[in-house]
């Protein structure tokens, strides 16, 4: 299956494809880094680990912003209904962020690690897969 587009849509789709290609690589990197952080956070509370965690969360936040933009762009496409399912897995991100925040604030590092390792990471793996598939059909 390929999305049919014409005129200005082609330009938009190309721009989105470039963004998605970049995001695929970044998603994996962010996921792996956060997974490492979550493992370390269970055994080590050093400045380095917390810095890496903050860095990872900031990068993830940027990525989520990009996905939101991407979604907005996609919504302008005629065949949006066909691409929408590939991005739906990212919707869960907000819920996980919501759960992570109180854990972070109360220094409940085990809960935070659990959320990253068992919720966020699989979700990022799924999200990356969705992006790859989306890239193929665009």
């Amino acid at each position: 299956m390929r999305i049919a587009c014409e005129g200005k849509e082609i330009e938009l789709v190309n721009a989105m494809k470039n963004g998605i290609t970049e995001a695929i690589g970044i998603t994996k990197e962010i996921g792996d880094r956060l997974l490492d952080c979550s493992c370390l956070l269970r055994v080590e509370h050093s400045e380095e680990v917390f810095n890496a965690l903050l860095g990872g969360i900031n990068n993830l936040s940027d990525l989520v912003d990009f996905i939101k933009e991407l979604k907005r762009g996609m919504e302008t496409l005629k065949d949006y209904s066909q691409v929408e399912p590939f991005l739906s897995s990212w919707d869960g991100s907000l819920k996980i962020f919501e759960d992570m925040l109180p854990a972070f604030e109360s220094k409940d590092w085990i809960t935070l690690s659990d959320l990253i390792q068992y919720e966020l990471h699989p979700f990022l793996v799924e999200g990356e897969k969705g992006l790859s598939e989306l890239n193929e059909i665009l």
Partner: peptide, 10 residues
Amino acid sequence: GNITLHSLYD
């Protein structure tokens, strides 16, 4: 309190 002492998953 607010501190989880062991993983709630495994």
